[in-house]
Design a protein around this nucleic acid. Structure first.
Lengths: 159, 159
DNA sequence: TTGACTGCAAAAACTTTGCAACGTC
DNA sequence: GACGTTGCAAAGTTTTTGCAGTCAA
């Protein structure tokens, strides 16, 4: 039930939703506006550019309401992802990282040696994305898996 | 202890190793030539272009020797990866897929909707790889994580 | 003989699920 | 009141680890 892929180029408009807008959307889909959902959302919207694990998110929520269960956080994230409001990324071998959806593509470069994550100018990938869709019909959806490699620092010869 | 990254462009030479060559290499590193290691290797070399999970590999090995344990398969794969002879890929949310290393880069495109995997002409990515390293110093190492998106078939409007 | 390797079982890490109680509409 | 949602606990999935016995060099 994901959105149809559209223009895969870099854009900048970012309509950060409010908690109320999201709750309304959930109600429109037959769901209910509940305290745990509100709190997860408020935490995500509080730092919209962060990406964090479900566990970290649960810990943040717990500082305000320790009764909210981690499985509820997982279920809320799953719901919000179905609605297209959040996404998860695999930056490495650990747990998934969650963040609010944004209109502009994100490409993560993670270093195999030091683990650092570089959030790259997506324009660099535009030519590739267009080339691939022209040649194969495959529409690349950035940012679900990181691209691994060696960062500038770790690439410098140690000798 | 991985190899220093070198020219990240598409090449074609593929020196498929023999079991004996690998066993010799293992011995040179202070390791031992054992039956489980031999069998895992023979299975991998038997279908060098396949990628498969540790569990599938263990099942294949079991048809010849059921006493070999899955944890030994994991440990063998880890060893062979340290030696640069095999690699694992994350094609989706399931278990890692293992395959013999090859000289030429591999890029996997997996479809979010139908799960199909497209092994793409790596030349398409050369420009990107060169662009990124020039701009940021980051040397992209293809093929550790898949690139997700929508395949041609799933992208055609249903109406 | 030495110590690397193995099988086994148990645990770790991350996520999902079953179910009865609860809260929203 | 109906039924979607939650907390809790338990289980599922993939991978790692501890340990005592085994085997290659």
């Amino acid at each position: 039930m994901g959105p149809r892929p559209s223009a895969p180029t870099s854009e900048t408009a970012d309509p950060a939703p409010t908690v109320e807008e999201v709750m309304e959307l959930i109600r429109q889909h037959g769901g209910r506006s509940t305290t745990p959902r509100r709190m997860v959302l408020e935490t995500l919207i509080g730092a919209p550019d962060d990406h964090r694990t479900a566990e970290q998110l649960a810990a943040e929520v717990h500082t305000r309401n320790p009764t909210i269960n981690e499985s509820t956080v997982y279920r809320t994230l799953e719901l919000l992802e179905e609605l297209g409001l959040v996404n998860h990324v695999h930056l490495g071998h650990g747990p998934s990282q969650w963040h609010l959806s944004s209109n502009h593509p994100r490409w993560y470069l993670t270093c195999t040696y030091c683990g650092s994550v570089t959030d790259t100018d997506p324009a660099v990938f535009d030519a590739l994305v267009n080339d691939v869709v022209t040649r194969t019909g495959f529409t690349i959806d950035s940012g679900h898996f990181a691209i691994t490699g060696t960062c500038a620092r770790c690439a410098t010869p140690p000798d």
